[in-house]
Design a protein around this nucleic acid. Structure first.
Length: 625
RNA sequence: CGGGGUGUAGCGCAGCUUGGUUAGCGCGCUUGACUGGGGGUCAAGAGGUCGAGAGUUCAAAUCUCUCCACCCCGACCA
């Protein structure tokens, strides 16, 4: 049955609620799709739920085609499961915790690797049962620092999360095969949802794992920064984005005498630059990181506190602190740093910005640290970005509070004093976030260009991180046991809706000055029938057309309200239903109705079509929307 | 968590500086009339713990204190 507007709950608003900043948020509120209940908490009204369900249906179909099987796990899970993998710590305050009446602690799941692994551990005993891909569509909870942009970053949201289990990475049934199948399914899903998207290499973050890709809808309102090579053969999230070779020299001759400058109350780059009348790009920024070793059992909890500045461990030489030096106008990339640290010190270490007071006790003048620290702290490693490993007029910290130096020179002030240790202690390496114009890592002369994107999907190759931590094994043909290899694959369903409204690519605009322009596949209705006066023949014709359209598979909303035509037209545009059929006396007199696509230019006239063929014509039209 | 800001009718806002009738305006809502192809006109209405609590005062939306919620920027993150 077609829906009647007057019988539904579609509270449209003329004015934009003050809290909404981005177009999708504003329009979802104005069109009566969502309503805010609290920070990052939204009611989905009838229109919103319809779209959500449509996106879910597409996801389910494509998951099925990719061989994934649907399950439903509890949203509330015992905290012990997350403790087993250390993610109760890794997720930190983002994890919602609830105590039950017996005082038992539970988490509201932010993502379900542990829970699915537990399930598979219980029932999957043999390699014969693998590969296995399970998925669910479920409400996830994350206690975001700062929920914002409406449903783009909310504290409760619908996620499709799939998990695959394998005995091997390569070969038939291996992780790579399923990863590729999920990747392909994602491309089909987003294409069907009418989203212009690109896939980028990504950092895996607290989920962990070896490889990962994100699916991004380009949009100026996106929170992620993507870099693309202008040769079109490389794209990555800034968190992951590598750069091609950049030249570096620590041998450049000094351009002036090292001079200490009193810079009272200027710990920040910008303050110092202003104070010394120079630019951040002429400064060296030194960040102090603390390296800690972590045992497999107590991941994320045990921190080794060394008494000296450096010491020997089973891993070999072990630094307690690492200094990272980048140009003042650049940012340290913690993902790159993490990878670097792990390759140097082993997988059991983690790295964090040093706690200022602790570091001060250990002799670091936080806020005024410079590369010369490497000399006074024998155990400290120094990683230098190539752009910082140059000659020039460098301003940097003097390693004492309220003082900086100018004319710092690598060779004279660090390399030579260190002597033979220098090459081991001072390492030049790509350690910063990419910036516009950096060389592409493909090394083909391409240059990196930035843009913003909304992350709608993310796929990961997890390896055995979770199966190992959870103690899950399967038997192989030779009767040996392994921890299954895993992949995981997430889609933010709510974000599909917001991204559809935000989208702005040629021929794929998600909104204009009049309202939303839904892609037909996830529009709450495909057709809205607007009667100029809802009575008599017009009302009957509306019902008749609705019936024919529904027989053809389209969802129809009949605007049966006793409103003036102007109001109905404005609301129809605001809602963004792909096709509007207008029924008025003039056309009706000649047996016709008017048909207009929402994405047609506002000035374009509606097409007059005979009632008998109207449904057929509209159904045909919808295929292209 | 740091910085900034806002809480007055469903939505958007004024009033607060300088305390003083019954707290206003626009949109929306109700009723009636006229109207009827891009957010109509007129008339009559309904709707408020002024975020909460405490204090000062003869008197508090307005001044003071405490708390709460929300928004923006940042640090951190799907």
């Amino acid at each position: 049955m077609a829906s009647k507007w007057s019988k539904s709950l579609i509270p449209t608003a003329r004015q934009v609620p003050a809290e909404a900043e981005v177009p999708s948020h504003q329009l979802m509120l104005r069109a009566g799709i969502i309503r805010k209940l609290g920070a990052g908490l939204y009611d989905y009204l009838p229109l919103g739920l319809r779209s959500l369900h449509k996106a879910m249906a597409i996801v389910r179909e494509e998951m099925g085609k990719a061989g994934a099987i649907e399950v439903l796990l509890p949203a509330m899970v015992p905290i012990e499961l997350y403790q087993k993998t250390g993610r109760d710590q890794a997720y930190g305050d983002n994890l919602f915790r609830v105590k039950d009446r017996h005082g038992r602690e539970n988490a509201l799941g932010p993502t379900h690797e542990e829970i699915i692994t537990e399930l598979v551990g219980a029932y999957v005993e043999s390699y014969k049962q693998l590969p296995l891909t399970l998925y669910q569509i479920q409400t996830k909870f994350r206690d975001e620092f700062r929920p914002r942009f409406g449903v783009l970053r909310s504290r409760e949201f619908q996620m499709k999360d799939a998990y695959s289990f394998h005995t091997a990475v390569e070969g038939p049934g291996g992780l790579n095969e399923i990863y590729d199948a999920q990747y392909a399914a994602y491309e089909r899903i987003f294409k069907r949802c009418g989203l212009p998207f690109l896939t980028v290499e990504a950092e895996s973050g607290p989920i962990g794992g070896s490889a990962s890709h994100e699916f991004m809808v380009p949009s100026p309102t996106g929170e992620d920064t993507i870099f693309e090579s202008d040769k079109g053969n490389y794209a990555a999230n800034v968190e992951k984005c590598e750069t091609g070779p950049r030249s570096a020299t620590l041998d450049a001759p000094p351009v002036g005498e090292l001079a200490k400058v009193h810079t009272p109350g200027c710990p920040g780059i910008d303050d110092v630059a202003k104070f010394m009348k120079t630019k951040p790009k002429n400064m060296l920024k030194s960040l102090v990181f603390e390296v800690s070793q972590i045992t497999q059992e107590q991941m994320g909890q045990l921190r080794l506190k060394a008494s000296q500045t450096g010491r020997a461990t089973s891993e070999g030489f072990f630094a307690e602190y690492v200094i990272v030096i980048v140009r003042g106008d650049h940012d340290v990339n913690e993902g790159k740093l993490n990878t670097l640290i792990k390759s140097k010190f082993g997988n059991n270490v983690s790295i964090n910005l040093a706690e200022p007071n602790e570091a001060k006790e250990d002799g670091f003048a936080i806020g005024y640290v410079g590369p010369q620290t490497a000399i006074s702290h024998p155990g400290v490693f120094v990683f230098v970005d190539p752009d910082a490993a140059q000659g020039g007029f460098w301003v940097t910290g003097a390693n004492e509070p309220d003082h900086h130096v100018k004319y710092f020179n690598w060779k004279r002030d660090v390399i030579d004093p260190l002597g033979p240790d220098a090459s081991q202690k001072v390492v030049v390496v790509d350690i910063r976030n990419a910036v516009e114009g950096d060389p592409s890592p493909k090394g083909d002369g391409g240059l990196l260009r930035p843009r913003k994107g909304i992350e709608i999907g993310h796929v990961f190759k997890l390896g055995d991180k979770y199966s190992k931590a959870m103690g899950v094994t399967v038997l192989l043909p030779d009767n040996s046991r392994i921890n299954p290899i895993m992949g995981c694959y997430g889609i933010g369903i709510n974000r599909i809706l917001a991204a559809a409204i935000e989208r702005d690519s040629p021929g794929m605009r998600g909104h204009d000055e009049n309202g939303i322009i839904w892609p037909a596949a996830i529009a709450p209705y495909q057709v809205v029938i607007t009667t100029i006066r809802h009575e008599g023949t017009a009302a009957e014709t509306a019902d008749r057309l609705a019936k024919e359209l529904e027989a053809g598979g389209a969802d129809v909303l009949i605007d049966d309200r006793d409103e003036r035509p102007g109001v109905k037209f404005k609301d129809a545009d605001l809602l963004g239903i792909p096709v509007r059929i207008t029924i008025g006396d003039k056309a009706l007199a000649t047996g016709q109705v008017e048909v207009k696509a929402r994405n047609a230019p506002a000035a374009a006239k509606a097409e007059l079509i005979a009632i008998d063929v109207a449904a057929k014509t509209v159904l045909e039209m919808l295929k292209g929307l």
